[in-house]
Design a protein around this nucleic acid. Structure first.
Length: 301
DNA sequence: AGTCAAACCTGTTTGC
DNA sequence: TGCAAACAGGTTTGAC
């Protein structure tokens, strides 16, 4: 489940069903699931065994469990869901999913945690926790620090460390198409193709406009719309077009009913009735209202 | 610094 | 009906 709201739904599920439990045994199938873990899957499985899960945390689309081993400093089990990853909490006897890549059993008799991923763009890694370079002064939110593989991305709009003014300044400094910058996780994290299109529609801005040519207030409003639409999606359990995007209990979200433009090509714009257009963008798709979001006269400058 | 394409995968939908 | 192409929520890399 990719973008911020869907990942947050999963994080909450982990907080409810996994935090506080002690990992007894992990089994990773194949090397690919741990390809971002330099020491390999066997090392990962060996090192998580015996550790207690003390927190489930998230920044942008990255998710991690803070693990406390018996005789060592805490570290993080970092999970990225990629395009099709799922974390499921299920009885150990439940039928094994076709694309099951990892299982975690706990010392209690409760259900196990499974990582299922059809396209295998996601994966697991064990990493040290570092101080958050974005947390100015003791902001709440990431008390355990940030895993090393997550340190390169910017805070997301829904976390306390998010600095709206600083993000507006970074957007303003980018001589690049504004949708491209919204999707740049080192500028602002958590926004993917769905919520970028929805935020741009709400702001009445075409994604091919130059970020640096927009005013600071307009950039601020765009960020506010991104935060709003992601919060609203989170309230609906996220966006699920199919069974690939589910919470830890396998349930779908229903924000797809509220999408104004994403995946709505040809349907009327909810604001003005003009048919929603779709165009190719960065080897994927952009959806927009040609009337509410006029294309720039010159594609940037 | 920014842009683009390709790479990593499997499955579903669309079009002829 | 069949088959191939297009398309899907993401990130990283390397070439220009």
């Amino acid at each position: 489940m990719p973008e911020l709201p869907e990942v947050e739904v999963v994080r909450r599920g982990l907080a409810d069903h996994v935090v506080g439990r002690t990992i007894d045994r992990a089994v990773l199938t194949g090397a690919r699931v741990a390809r971002r873990h330099a020491a390999g899957p066997a090392d990962l499985a060996a090192r998580v065994a015996g550790a207690r899960v003390v927190a489930a945390d998230r920044r942008g689309k990255y998710l991690w469990l803070v693990l406390q081993p018996p005789h060592d400093d805490p570290h993080a089990l970092v999970v990225h869901l990629g395009m099709s990853g799922q974390l499921l909490v299920e009885d150990a006897g439940a039928p094994r999913e076709k694309h099951l890549h990892a299982t975690f059993d706990f010392g209690d008799d409760g259900p196990q945690l499974r990582f299922v991923d059809q396209r295998t763009f996601g994966g697991l890694a064990l990493a040290p926790l570092l101080p958050d370079r974005h947390a100015g002064h003791a902001l709440p939110g990431h008390e355990h620090g940030i895993p090393e593989p997550v340190a390169h991305i910017a805070p997301d709009p829904l976390e306390p460390a998010f600095d709206r003014g600083a993000t507006v300044r970074r957007l303003k400094g980018k001589d690049s198409e504004v949708k491209r910058v919204l999707l740049d996780q080192t500028v602002v994290s958590g926004v993917g193709n769905i919520y970028a299109d929805e935020a741009l529609w709400r702001a009445g801005v075409h994604g091919r406009r130059s970020a640096s040519a927009l005013t600071r207030p307009a950039l601020g409003r765009l960020l506010d719309h991104a935060a709003d639409v992601m919060r609203e999606a989170l309230d609906q359990g996220g966006t699920s077009f199919d069974a690939l995007y589910v919470n830890v209990n396998g349930a779908s979200g229903y924000f797809d009913r509220s999408l104004a433009v994403y995946g709505q090509s040809g349907r009327p714009c909810p604001r003005c009735g003009t048919p929603v257009a779709r165009e190719e963008f960065m080897n994927r798709s952009s959806h927009f209202c040609p009337r509410c979001q006029p294309r720039p006269r010159r594609p940037r400058a």
